[in-house]
Design a binder for these strands. Sequence first.
DNA 1: TTGAAAGCGCTAACAA
DNA 2: TTGTTAGCGCTTTCAA
Lengths: 340, 340
Amino acid sequence: MSTVTRPKLEDVARLAGVSLGSASRALSVPEQVKPDTLQKVQRAVEQLGYVRNGAAQALASRRTRTVAAVYPTLDNPIFAVSIQSLQQTLWKLGYQLLVASHEYKPEREADVLKAILERGVDGVVLVGTDHTDEVFELLRQYRLPYVTTWSTDERRAGYCVGFSYYEAAYEMARLVVQHGHTRIALCTGASKGNERVRARIAGTRAALKAADLELRPEWVTEKPFTFEGGREAVRTVMVGKVLPTALICGSDIQAVGAIAECRDLHMRVPEDLSVTGSDDIELAELVQPRLTTVRVPTSEIGTRAAKRMVSLIEGADVLAEEDLTTCLVVRDSLRRISGD
Amino acid sequence: MSTVTRPKLEDVARLAGVSLGSASRALSVPEQVKPDTLQKVQRAVEQLGYVRNGAAQALASRRTRTVAAVYPTLDNPIFAVSIQSLQQTLWKLGYQLLVASHEYKPEREADVLKAILERGVDGVVLVGTDHTDEVFELLRQYRLPYVTTWSTDERRAGYCVGFSYYEAAYEMARLVVQHGHTRIALCTGASKGNERVRARIAGTRAALKAADLELRPEWVTEKPFTFEGGREAVRTVMVGKVLPTALICGSDIQAVGAIAECRDLHMRVPEDLSVTGSDDIELAELVQPRLTTVRVPTSEIGTRAAKRMVSLIEGADVLAEEDLTTCLVVRDSLRRISGD
DNA sequence: TTGAAAGCGCTAACAA
DNA sequence: TTGTTAGCGCTTTCAA
């Protein structure tokens, strides 16, 4: 009970009456020792309450059994859910997760990564494919396997776990157009260092173009992925003589904020302004009006990223996987406009 | 650029023309080396792109510069916000954060902690004061400093960073009573292994008692801290001949779920049922009706916990701090009942 | 203020 | 299958 000092493997070996090497093997490659030896070691471990010293193990084996994930922010339900599944899956595979965030400041990412490198990890999970050269350089230099998530990217296809933001945006914009809207505004996040935002803008523009519509520059706003960002978008876009009849938001969080702002401004959703979101977070069907949005495979991304990361680390064959898919979820916040 | 192998301190020392010891000191205790030496080492570090090997450092110094935090879940905005501030503050103080969660299963906490111990951390941040003996035993055995957060607890007062759930609940219940409600229901989380839930029930009960009211057992429901939990609470409690006129929820998330369920059930909030929350998450003022709730110092908890944790680790004097406070936020989801 | 050298606790190659 | 032993890269005495 009151161990004065933390027991080491040597203590375990001595108590079990085997050599240090056998004790080590009993713990890491149990199938390579005699059942008898294994049992003796296990008993000693239990008796002493022995727990491996990870630093020593990492130093000697050059493996940490930890993977790091660098997120734009932790304070967004889609990332929280995704981290959750990433964590759970890694845990089952025997890995721990070290999380970090750069608060949507792409230029900070390399610093965050450096700190992680120093601490030592076996692999890194990144969000998106757009990172500074420094980030990729560090990864290369330290020979760290990595997977990029959320977005797909043709060039690095083997290591992406995500879906096409372009297509998701295209589908949504088409849906809005099909509902008879012609004056359509777009609220996204900051496009710098974020290819997902850029793909979304491009997809939306393409869908409008296919309907001979134009995405007016003054109706495209880049706002933070927060409730407040959505509020700002409404204030930014609902000025001037000609007003949009629909606001497509890049995230449900923004959409919910936009709806709240409309209410405060005494505008009705969807009668005065239709609002759509993206992600289909749980909240989407709880707000009033219920949000029309696009469902993305949030938790699946975490699970798959974990598995792929471990395959990469352990040198298993990494099979090219199909991209994940999204689907429209039609609820009440998008109005059908008859005539014009 | 294309370093074949990661440079070590020895390489730095050689390039700088100093001994290994001096190079080490230049990095960790720069004030103990001559400015000249310091500069030479710094230059070499830069030139080689040297990054410390954390495992080796941890092994030799028996310090990891990492603190772990074990949460019930990561998928709850109050924890996300708190983690955020914890992380930021630790980072500024030169520490990294390792997060883990036990998914509201108190019995898993010790296992999670063991994995953390193995990885090696300098201290642990826990949520709440109610943990299994095994958890405290591990902490003691490994001499790990820890701080408990969110809740205050007289017995371990020196290491708590939190507020009184009892008082917060008392205030809220009193407010509800003052609004003329006599039939009051309570929706909390699971009380097992969660002293915060128990304190909340006790506080609510005490406030009712002070008004000669009773907290009926059939109107006290323990549900998960999720939207769905709030929905279930409404279904559980709104049966029978006599119905409550107010539902006090243990979290805003539950309250928002409850409001949505009322809507689906064609009950109006607050006309047919008043609903109150707790935490004052951002969403609270975005929903319709806007939520009456109690504001808790979410981000302050993270900041203070980080500072206290580092003081504990570095052996600084840990000054007894005052408990944090909460305050009622009155909005629209609580109705005033005239007469009865 | 510096250099030399002895570990930190473990893994893995090698020999038996 | 097991025991022996040489490191893994760093910190930290100790002596100079």
